[in-house]
Design a protein around this nucleic acid. Structure first.
Length: 293
DNA sequence: GTTCTCGGCCG
DNA sequence: CGGCCGAGAAC
């Protein structure tokens, strides 16, 4: 009878990878065991370097213990004085099993390796989860778009939008185009209501007091008339292509404030109804026949 | 030829 | 001592 070889799943590796342990049954090293891994396709691996070579950047084997098949966070490689930039080039130096190479995560459909420097004393891992929303942004960046106009395929410059008169620009450039950029961008950056710059200080000295999460425009109030006008323009096809969507977004934003009010009203109504229901329930429990006393 | 198994080097 | 891999044995 042949000793059954167990290939067990290995949770520390991608799905489909199997681990096998074979006990040596003869020779001087009898009793010792060898560990093998099998890729989903069935290829056999008999060492960590071999595994690492194959998995490349897809899995970080730094804390992977080949014998047990588990991740052992405590067992990070002791830092020998390796004061060199990790060498990607052929045959010089050994592959770093500690970490997968960093991969650029943005702006390319193909993964691209990034130069990794591990010996810089000031290396720190950013833990700031707000990072995305707190990244520095250029003040008055809208100016860079000045003079750019969209055109259709026949090179004819598209008619720009007429913005509601209530919308007024703030800052070094007060053209409608800049204002439109500012508002359109704000709409795409966040789903919060767009209010414009509510602080009067921002109007006087925007370079200092600008609220960067709001567009470069004075605080405004949205009237029903504004909304109707915007929608009408969209229907009339006064704005096409990209501008269409911007206009639509603008209308939606203007609506957004109204929506908040409506939602508020609904909540109030719901509370009132609930209170009423409770009151009736209390009353009928006192008087099960439902008759007035 | 491929796969299995143990020896032995090297850190 | 254990990881890794060469190479002979086995198939």
């Amino acid at each position: 009878m042949i000793m059954e070889r167990k290939r067990t799943d290995c949770p520390a590796l991608p799905p489909g990878w199997k681990k096998e342990e074979v006990i040596r049954k003869s020779g001087l090293s009898a009793g010792k065991s060898d560990v093998y891994y099998y890729s989903p396709s069935g290829k056999k691996f008999r060492s960590k370097p071999q595994l690492s070579r194959y998995l490349g950047n897809t899995v970080d084997l730094g804390s992977f213990d080949f014998r047990t098949g588990k991740m052992m966070p405590s067992k990070m490689q002791k830092n020998k004085q390796r004061l060199r930039i990790e060498n990607l080039s052929l045959s010089k130096g050994k592959p770093d099993l500690n970490t997968a190479l960093p991969i650029r995560q943005t702006a390319s459909i193909f993964k691209q390796p990034v130069t990794k420097v591990v010996n810089h004393p000031n290396n720190k891992v950013k833990t700031d989860l707000q990072r995305a929303s707190e990244q520095p942004r250029q003040l008055f960046w809208e100016k860079r778009l000045k003079g750019l106009r969209s055109s259709d395929v026949s090179e004819e410059v598209l008619k720009t939008m007429d913005l509601p008169k209530g919308l007024q620009s703030i800052g070094p450039d007060s053209s409608d185009a800049t204002l439109l950029s500012a508002i359109a961008s704000a709409l795409h950056m966040s789903s919060a209501p767009i209010t414009g710059q509510t602080s009067s200080a921002a109007e006087k000295n925007p370079a200092i007091w600008l609220n960067t999460s709001q567009p470069l425009c004075k605080a405004f109030t949205v009237t029903d008339e504004d909304i109707r006008e915007q929608e009408l323009k969209v229907r009339q096809g006064l704005c096409v292509c990209v501008l269409d969507s911007l206009s639509l977004s603008l209308s939606l934003s203007l609506l957004r404030e109204q929506e908040l009010k409506v939602r508020q009203a609904r909540l109030s109504l719901e509370e009132a109804l609930m209170a009423d229901t409770l009151a009736r329930a209390a009353e009928s429990s006192r008087d099960p026949e439902g008759r007035a006393p």
